[in-house]
Simulated assay, not measured.
Amino acid sequence: MVTTVGALKGNISEYRFRSRSEHTLDSKGRLNIPTRFREVLREVYTETLVVTNWEKCLRAYPVSEWEELEEKLLGQGQMEPGFGDFVRYVISGVTECTLDKQGRILVPATLRSEFEIDKDVVLNGMLHHFEIWDKTAWIEQTRKTRNRFPDFNSGLSSLGIL
């Protein structure tokens, strides 16, 4: 589907989840999805997301991207020793969330609680999916990454970026 839409709508690379934005959950746990992310969903995918727990944040995948990840877990993942624990953890948090008419999703209370997502959140684009972070956790993670930036030089160099 991605190739077809890309061919019809122009360069597919313009339809990726990029950048970050800060948001506030309402009292019911609804999260406004940024317009630029909704545009990616409308142009390339559907308005349904699969949200699940990850390491330090929630991840939100368009359904087709999530299905690709599941296939990898079913196929290649079974070959990895001890990988069942990872699969159990990630699959246990899976919730399908459809955008409402205002462009919001309801983040399940169980996931909000597990990641201490109370009110202030950061949405961070990761090209084919996006992350939902508690704002305080995001600030801490960003600080740690910034301090490790020299560690990325070898990888960036091998990709021809440096």
Rank of each mutant, 00 (worst) to 15 (best):
I161D: 05
I105N: 08
E70Q: 10
E65P: 01
S157A: 10
V90M: 07
T24V: 09
V121G: 02
D151G: 08
L99K: 13
I132Y: 01
L74A: 15
L8C: 02
T46S: 14
N11V: 02
G84I: 08
V94S: 00
E67W: 00
T110W: 02
F115N: 12
I12T: 07
A7I: 09
L162A: 15
E96I: 00
I105Y: 02
W54R: 01
I132R: 03
F17N: 09
F83W: 04
S113K: 13
Q102W: 14
W66F: 12
L31K: 04
V44K: 04
Y89V: 01
R146T: 14
L127S: 07
K101G: 11
A137C: 06
V121W: 05
P108F: 01
E114W: 02
T98E: 15
E80T: 12
W138Q: 06
T35A: 14
M126Y: 06
P108M: 01
D118Q: 12
T4G: 09
P62S: 05
T145C: 02
A7M: 07
S13H: 08
G75T: 11
K9A: 15
S158M: 14
L127V: 13
G93L: 00
G155V: 04
R104N: 05
F130Y: 10
L106F: 05
D26Q: 07
N153P: 00
E131M: 07
R20E: 12
K144S: 05
L49G: 01
E131D: 06
D120W: 08
P108H: 03
L123S: 10
C97E: 03
L49M: 02
Q76C: 07
R36M: 03
S154N: 12
L99S: 08
R143Q: 13
I12M: 06
L73R: 03
S21T: 15
W133A: 02
L49P: 03
P34W: 00
R146D: 14
F37C: 06
A137I: 08
T46R: 09
E39D: 09
H128K: 13
L69G: 09
Q76N: 09
